[in-house]
Design a protein around this nucleic acid. Structure first.
Lengths: 166, 166
DNA sequence: CCCATGGCTGCGAAATCCGCAAGACACGTA
DNA sequence: TACGTGTCTTGCGGATTTCGCAGCCATGGG
């Protein structure tokens, strides 16, 4: 059935270190984006592979860190009452600052950007005191941080992981 | 075993419409944040509940929209080569703008904030043309949008859903 | 040419998921 | 207080899924 196609089904590394994904793996990911608990057999039927093959591919994708299967929530509804996005401007090398932010447990999301901020970091805290401490005492104190600007979350309106299915 | 505690285990609505979660449901969510495919029996053992009880709680949490179990990836490694955070400032009511953003399939994340932006929106696109189209032609054209500022993603450094486990 | 590697398939055993029925408890009402 | 009502919990099969393993095929290197 699998209609062994001619296109490369490899796992070569592209130059940025990210594994190259073929269409079948993308289809598997798409299935799991709709329902992270979908059975392997059902996925196999959808993408044209055996159950075992799907299982192996999924395991590899997880091992490689290409995807993770997790429960996601709106922290605001689950007891974390203060959340904020912090824009950081840095002088010099971005990496040390990004690493330091990544190491903080309150920081859920770190991305390097082009624009008037060099780094965006999303922070999840229990309360105002906690948030203030993280931003004012810990982030602004990092060597290389020139300035920060905070955007406290008021309401989360959308949170999707369904790209690819459109 | 379940040591029926005295604290409320209800599903009342708090004033903002979010279901109130007890400690057991939080523990279940925590388990699924570590591994979205963890078997119900294993979760039950960890939180002190029967397999069936866990299953029903999970199903309810999913139905209520409190959490979702999905595969998450770094879009940059999966073929979506342009991603950006857009800060939007609005005149007048925020809701219509937030709704319009939410309706766009390229917009993955919408949050209302306090600060120099009223709304932050994360955008996932195939290429530069696509990104330009979304930001310049569609978002900036929305009635009520006063201005926007874009932060194109260069590299995703961290992406976690492990709050609560710390 | 031969061999090593990687990926897919098929299969049987073990574990898991799922639906159902019954018991326990809290709460609201008469 | 007594009595429903609704929710939560538990236990138990049967169907389904997961898991590990052996074999097969294609590709690429020596």
């Amino acid at each position: 059935m699998a209609s062994r196609s001619a296109e490369p089904r490899d796992s070569r590394e592209s130059r940025n270190g990210s594994p190259q994904l073929d269409a079948v793996s993308l289809a598997i990911i798409e299935q799991l984006q709709q329902d992270g608990r979908r059975p392997y057999a059902a996925i196999g039927k959808a993408v044209g592979l055996s159950e075992a093959a799907v299982r192996q591919r999924v395991q590899k994708l997880l091992d490689q860190g290409v995807m993770q299967i997790v429960a996601v929530t709106d922290p605001l509804t689950v007891g974390f009452r203060r959340q904020a996005m912090v824009g950081v401007t840095v002088e010099g090398d971005l990496d040390p600052v990004a690493e330091a932010l990544t190491a903080m447990s309150e920081v859920e999301y770190v991305v390097m950007t082009a624009g008037s901020f060099d780094i965006l970091a999303e922070i999840v805290c229990e309360d105002d005191d906690h948030l203030l401490d993280v931003i004012n005492k810990r982030i602004r104190a990092l060597p290389g941080v020139r300035s920060t600007e905070s955007f406290v979350y008021l309401k989360l309106k959308k949170q999707t992981y369904m790209w690819g299915t459109r």
